[in-house]
Amino acid sequence: MSKLVSLICGIIFGIGLVISEMINPTKVLGFLNLFGDWDPSLAFVMLGALIISSPFFHLFKNNKKPIFTERFSYSHNKEINKNLIIGSSLFGAGWGLIGLCPGPAIASLALFNINSAVFVIAMFVGFYLVKLSDLRTQAR
């Protein structure tokens, strides 16, 4: 069942990205263009998502287990360190250059856009490079 849930959640998420228009980099760049012609829409997307999800996190997080899997598994990392700031800054720079973050980038593959495909491939290369450097650090 968890597999079907994964597929359906992906579909719902993708539909949300289309309706909110966050799949379109122009809308995202409009939000980041705070000092020019500003489009505040993205803030309303986050607000909508948080209003729906946040109360339920707090209601269900103390439950013994989720419905279709054995245990809740998510990051309990509370560390605020150099990596958090450096990583978020690199991400912010990449986000501002094109207006794509991982969700909309992958969802936009549905539109057979060659530019978003190039971006997604480069993003996966990035994922792999970090994994590679993690493995090297561990091996030392």
């Binding site: 949300g16 829409s41 997307v45 339920f56 996190f57």
Partner: peptide, 28 residues
């Protein structure tokens, strides 16, 4: 302020939130 679409943005956001919370409650 240009191209501001608060209603579709908020609606799309709630749909994204729905996906997030279903994934959490069912798959953890």
């Amino acid at each position: 302020i240009i191209n501001f679409t608060p209603i579709s943005a908020f609606l799309g956001g709630t749909i994204i939130g729905l996906s997030v919370i279903i994934f959490f409650i069912l798959n953890g």
